[in-house]
Computed example of a mutant assay.
Amino acid sequence: MPPAPAPTDPGTIRSEPARGVIDEQRMMALMENVVEKIKVWFRFVPREGWLPQDIEGLWASKLGDDTASVENCPFLQDGVAEGDVVRYRTDSDGLHWAVGLVSSSGNCTIRVVPVPTGPLGRSPQAVHQRLSEFGLGGEVFSEDFPMLSLTAEAGADFAGIKALLNRGRDEGWWHYEVSCGTDAWWNA
Results as ranks from 00 to 15, higher is better:
F145R: 15
S15Y: 14
P146H: 05
P114V: 00
S132W: 06
G11N: 13
T151C: 11
C73D: 11
S69H: 11
F134I: 04
R89L: 11
K62T: 02
V85G: 01
M1G: 15
L58S: 06
E48Y: 11
E133S: 12
W186K: 15
L131Q: 07
C73P: 02
W59R: 12
L95D: 11
L136Q: 05
G121M: 04
R14H: 14
P10W: 03
G83C: 06
R167F: 10
W186P: 03
N166G: 08
R111L: 08
N72P: 02
A159M: 01
G94D: 04
A6D: 10
R167G: 04
D23I: 00
Y176A: 00
P114R: 05
A154E: 14
E153Y: 10
G11R: 15
P119H: 08
G168D: 05
G181W: 02
D84K: 08
R111G: 01
G118H: 03
P5E: 09
W186T: 11
P74A: 06
L164G: 01
A98V: 07
G79P: 00
A4I: 14
H175P: 00
A98G: 06
N187Y: 10
S105C: 03
L148T: 00
N72V: 00
W97L: 01
G94I: 07
I38V: 14
R47S: 10
R47F: 10
N107V: 01
F44E: 02
E133A: 12
G118S: 03
A68W: 00
K37S: 14
V34Q: 14
A156M: 07
E24I: 10
L150R: 08
M28G: 11
A152V: 00
F44R: 06
W59F: 13
P17K: 10
T182C: 01
V70F: 05
G168T: 02
D65G: 12
L51T: 12
S61D: 15
E139G: 10
G49V: 00
V86F: 03
R43D: 07
P114E: 04
D78P: 03
C73Q: 13
D23C: 03
V140F: 01
